[in-house]
Design a protein around this nucleic acid. Structure first.
Lengths: 96, 96
DNA sequence: GTAATATATGAATAATTGCTCATATATTCA
DNA sequence: TGAATATATGAGCAATTATTCATATATTAC
């Protein structure tokens, strides 16, 4: 099942999006439902700027989606694959 | 479901192990069964050194396991979590 | 209109990482 | 024992990346 270089790159990019502790913690917060940038920043003790930079990458990989309401932007997990990847990975870390 | 920093780091490390196209391609070859370092290197057009370096990281994260036979070392997918992560990710890349 | 708030973004810097090259270890065969 | 083969590893370099700081855009309130 040898992947083409292109598909390998795409898949690696997906996992790269999950390969940083800050982004993992952002996603862990979003597992419970949507949150604003400020709520995420407060929840993790990060600056809004750092959070916003990271959310951008997650958005581009379709791991989270943004919903704008007034001057706030609420982020949530984009689709079911994401939460499944997350919990499957967590599973491996905790038991495996 | 806010993760502790430690668990977030562990989970990020797991995904980091999958965050490179060369490693993804190594794993894609191993999805069909065990292979020697040379077979992997030949299969991907990489040097044995580069492959060996990458396999080390995969081994440390328990994504692959090594079986020594004579002077060869055969690598295979370590456990089921790994193949599930791989195919789930591939799924997300191909459809999602 | 101006001020204040929420988020986004560009540039710069520090840290991480994947590869190459050279060398080391381990195993088989003569 | 010595040569050949298979794999592993350390150092060094080039490329990537996460954060900070400063600034920009967008929305609401006055």
């Amino acid at each position: 099942m040898k992947l083409t270089e292109l598909k390998a790159i795409k898949l690696a990019e997906l996992f790269s999006a999950l390969s940083d502790a800050s982004r993992i913690r952002l996603i862990s917060l979003l597992m419970d439902g949507e949150l604003s940038v400020r709520a995420l920043a407060d929840g993790l003790g990060m600056t809004e700027s750092a959070v916003s930079h990271q959310l951008r990458g997650l958005r581009q990989m379709h791991l989270v989606r943004a919903r704008k309401s007034g001057r706030q932007v609420f982020y949530s997990i984009d689709d079911d694959h994401v939460s499944r990847l997350f919990t499957l990975g967590l599973d491996h870390v905790q038991h495996g």
